[in-house]
Design a protein around this nucleic acid. Sequence first.
DNA 1: GCCAACGTTGGC
DNA 2: GCCAACGTTGGC
Length: 158
Amino acid sequence: MAAARQFWLVKSEPDVFSFQDLQAAKQRETSWDGVRNYQARNFLRAMAVGDEVLYYHSSCLEPGVAGIASVVHAAIPDPTQFDPQSPGFDPASTREQPRWDAVRIRALRALPRFVTLDALRAERRLAGMRLLARGNRLSVLPVTPQEWRVIAELGGLS
DNA sequence: GCCAACGTTGGC
DNA sequence: GCCAACGTTGGC
């Protein structure tokens, strides 16, 4: 029996790589690498092919959820950790014992309505959402099916 | 640019 | 194992 599909949220600075950039990418895909936080890495490792991912724009004029992507390849060692030229280079990582992982995601669709951080905060059904917790800084987060439904609704889906 | 919150590092 | 210093995140 197949495991139930899980839901996630990833943050990206749109000035660096927006959801539109993902849609415009070759195959609408990208390697989700550069994550350098252990908790976030563990969430990456828990992702399975077919899981769905909310794509959140952070550190910008209007933070919020821009679109939906899906996981098309499960976690592998993040190649940027071995690259001295990369900002993600980690001298403590070895090929034998890599510390950091990356997954591959593909854009599914933009939300018909961009769901702003303000709108998320204003929605009582999302009061417990991890993204909205005080001081939250994780760039990869799990999302509950209930939260997913509410955000899809706010975004104009279904 | 500011600042609160948080994770990581390293001296002890 | 503690904890101060430091770096980063991310909203504003």
